[in-house]
Nucleic acid binder design. Sequence first.
DNA 1: GGCCAATATTGACACTTTGTCATTTTTGAC
DNA 2: GTCAAAAATGACAAAGTGTCAATATTGGCC
Lengths: 229, 229
Amino acid sequence: MKPPAPLPTSDKRARTRDQLLVAAQQLLVEQNAGALGIRQIALKAGLVHGSFYNYYADVPALIEDLSGLLFASHATLVAGLRSGGDDLAATFARVTRQTLRLIPDGDGYGRLLFDAGLPVDRFVSGLRAAMGADIAAGVRRGVFVADDLDVTISLVAGGILGAAVDLHRGALPAPAIEPVTARLLETLGLSAADARRLAFADVTFITPPSLPLRWQDVPAPFREALRAS
Amino acid sequence: MKPPAPLPTSDKRARTRDQLLVAAQQLLVEQNAGALGIRQIALKAGLVHGSFYNYYADVPALIEDLSGLLFASHATLVAGLRSGGDDLAATFARVTRQTLRLIPDGDGYGRLLFDAGLPVDRFVSGLRAAMGADIAAGVRRGVFVADDLDVTISLVAGGILGAAVDLHRGALPAPAIEPVTARLLETLGLSAADARRLAFADVTFITPPSLPLRWQDVPAPFREALRAS
DNA sequence: GGCCAATATTGACACTTTGTCATTTTTGAC
DNA sequence: GTCAAAAATGACAAAGTGTCAATATTGGCC
């Protein structure tokens, strides 16, 4: 079987692995991660099942890489939002709003995160770490007030996750994103007025990367820093 | 209903199914749900793998039942706490504290919920529903204040989940449970002083059911109401 | 205690999937 | 254009899944 021609190119390895990841994401639209099979993924990616093992040891290994890719993709987005200015409260509001906006009527971020059975540990702990650092910095500068920092971080990170889950389920409508952001800012010690002002401020949102995600679309510095495995 | 049949009155069926659930819980101490095999579970329960199919269609079906059992077990616990009194704020504090106490140094509730790869959807949405009803009732009675009920419920439910995750990971120490409870009560509109008083009140905790869980240990009314499929 | 139908268990079977690997094909640097 | 390294292939052994007719067990009834 044969012949299709020699393809152009350079990093064949990276491209083939992305093909596997793309195939997995397509299958995850209709299946749970637990139901994915090596044969299935490989065929969808245009490979014979034996070739899968050139890239991953087994399906969980691919799933973990996909989960890392999802996190890297979000981290890239956040980095873009963060570079806007150095007002920590305003940055928090921007990041929170844009993150929550990814969920509801979506290209499928919500499904990937909450319904597909991916391990979201890395995502959640990464979110907590990044946000924890920002909140701690805000407290040091006097922008935020928190008598018990760890408790505040848990509640704020949990609140964002809870809102995301509810947005995905339809238990919260999309217009609730700004009120949620405002109340989180209050939890961080801002006055109700300031919280509202920041949460409802006009902002231009960065367009998020569309699915399916590919490592090749992740800027190189992030790719190297975050592709753990 | 079966019109023509001498009905079995034994609980052998229920006992064997509980054996399968127990075997699965034992295996989940060291394995992910995705890695469980029918043969493995059945052998551990003292059966041949073919017998498994008398009880569940496949492993995901058992896992779902286990997830329902976990929720039923918690719901039973909460019902016991709730019957204490009709002060909604005090009840909220009791339920939150006892729920969070299950997680950290545990018989394994934390692992089962957060690490074993069980689908926690039912648990999370059940928590949200029960808590949402209580919060709404509290708002109606003037015990709680919430301008946007859905937002408040999302943030409070998410906060509890977030704290549970962090307790399980060790990012929050067990003594943080009461401060977390206090801040959640503030989110519900109580004054800082009232929140602290309720969150730190002396209470006698009900001892939770120990693992492994069995449907036979769930009181009959809850068993019937919650054993979905 | 012993009988009997309903029910549970068994083990063998066909089928699917996984993981390995020697071989063939493709790639891209020279 | 050549060639060593890298990737893809397909056939295989091993393991798991799901089915089912046959066998064993259970508990109600006398």
